[in-house]
Design a protein around this nucleic acid. Structure first.
Lengths: 117, 117
DNA sequence: GTATTAGTTGAGCAACTGTTCAACTATATA
DNA sequence: TATATAGTTGAACAGTTGCTCAACTAATAC
């Protein structure tokens, strides 16, 4: 993802490029942003998020709903936790997960809108 | 991503699971939704989308802005095209790309909000 | 027609990712 | 204490992905 000093093209629209350049995301921010969206970009994780949108659930509930092992679910929940997409609370032996904030719901909504339009 | 008939856990919260189950995404829709988000989940593609949000750009402009080859950009644009995240118009030798609709902008916005809060 | 530049495409490969498996920690109960 | 269930974690492996390279098509100019 390194930026080359010069461009291979001859007919760049220089005025437009110069105007756009300062509004680009920095490398670090682009990678961080992509990392968040990457978490929505997997069938298992997006089904986990959709399920948590309906109700908080423990790891077992999710494993049962999605037909996966607790291990697989737990691995994915860890990734979702690290990017603050889900939060959790322990109650006795159970750990209940839920969506972290309304951004997560909003992103799911808009994605579905895009699909269904 | 196949669903097992039974769950490995003993203490599933059956009433909650039963309530959530009918609201889950189907397998096909979950995969389609994940496929869309996957496109946002790469540093190069998210920088392309952010750049197109500012102004329509040709492949060369993007290659120049991001410091990548035309081939690399074109490959990514094809993926974005196939999921209707960008549209394009040809003008002489140039092909100008722009964002397909306001959903794309909205998803970028909310993702950035989540990062920056 | 040829030449030039813009853009696309398929193959190949290195890097990454999601699941499984086994071993582990945490909490509760007897 | 020992036992059982819930949950986590690291390694390993198969499957996926993004870039490069080379060859190709598209439009313009001569």
């Amino acid at each position: 993802m390194a930026r080359l000093p010069v461009c291979e093209c001859e007919s760049v629209h220089q005025d437009i490029v110069d105007a756009v350049k300062p509004q680009l995301l920095g490398d670090a921010e682009a990678i961080d942003l992509a990392s968040v969206f990457k978490l929505f970009g997997d069938g298992t994780r997006v089904r986990i998020l959709q399920a948590l949108r309906v109700h908080e659930l423990c790891v077992c509930d999710l494993a049962c709903l999605l037909g996966l092992t607790k291990s697989a679910i737990s691995h994915q929940l860890k990734a979702l936790r690290l990017s603050n997409l889900v939060k959790f609370r322990r109650e006795a032996q159970n750990v209940f997960y839920s969506l972290a904030d309304e951004h997560v719901e909003a992103i799911l909504d808009i994605g579905l809108e895009h699909l269904r339009e």
